[in-house]
Design a protein around this nucleic acid. Structure first.
Lengths: 149, 149
DNA sequence: ACCAGATAGTGCGATATCGGACCACATGCA
DNA sequence: TGCATGTGGTCCGATATCGCACTATCTGGT
């Protein structure tokens, strides 16, 4: 039994989660072209999965990041021509974010580039176990979110 | 069902892990005093749990971060008087990192400040489930680490 | 003993995160 | 209508992450 094994399970849990987030993010970004980060991809993916035309604040809430962070992420996406923003006709303070054709294509290519890595991982870790762990992760995430105030 | 069909579950898994890492880190840092980050705390904790007198490179490997990041983290800890470094008598290129009395005290206080949050979380999520998820997380972490090259 | 290659650590530059301050517009209430 | 308050978004500054390049030192083979 190593010293780590004696730590309370909660600490080890968050420790493992932190390291996995860090490693997966690094592996992820290594597959994306120059300067495109995991948050960039996540936003593109969200706009496709949910629907584009979201406002920056909606996106910030969806990803649980401060709005200043989302401003910055969107600026990066816009500078790369992957999204465009237009004024929100229903609210003069606000914008809406739209995917460009390049943005959609980029996301699809990225999925293709990522697939082999996911498959390689599936060779080491049973995907059914991954899926079985999802409800717990969601529960933890919601509990943390609720605790934020 | 082939592993490829499980692909969306993998994506959701890493997505949840990323958000949990982000929220837990933010909650964590909100409890620590001015400017002390989760990595700072993690390093202090590691030095107490394992043993101090580690080299910066050993620490970087333990936390799976680039050595430049560890240099920066250690500089922050040293500036706050929580650790001190001395030359490694066995290797002139290297240093060893030692805890100060303040560093030990700081860590113990932080554990005390964190305990209520952990307890509050335990009220929403069964700690036994958390513990049951640890082997999977370790497996994923090790697979990612092995894939780094 | 020498030298080539490996290894420990740092400096620097690019970029990300995020809190606080700020502006513009919206909303509610008198 | 007019103003106090609230909300969407950005700018700025402090700090974190991390790749690249560099120095100092160590190690192994000759």
């Amino acid at each position: 039994m190593t010293p780590e094994d004696r730590l309370p399970a909660m600490f080890r849990f968050f420790n493992e989660v932190g390291i996995i987030a860090q490693l997966s993010r690094a592996a992820f970004e290594a597959r994306l072209s120059e300067g495109v980060t995991a948050p960039h991809f996540s936003v593109l993916n969200h706009l496709i999965r949910v629907a584009d035309g979201r406002t920056p604040l909606e996106l910030a809430r969806a990803f649980q990041v401060p709005k200043t962070t989302m401003t910055h992420t969107l600026a990066g996406l816009e500078a790369r021509g992957l999204v465009e923003t237009r004024p929100n006709p229903e609210d003069g303070r606000s914008k809406r974010v739209w995917l460009t054709a390049r943005g959609r294509a980029f996301r699809d290519e990225a999925i293709g580039l990522l697939a082999p890595d996911v498959a390689a991982l599936a060779a080491h870790v049973n995907p059914a176990e991954i899926e079985a762990a999802l409800p717990l992760l969601e529960k933890v995430r919601k509990a943390l979110d609720a605790a934020r105030g």
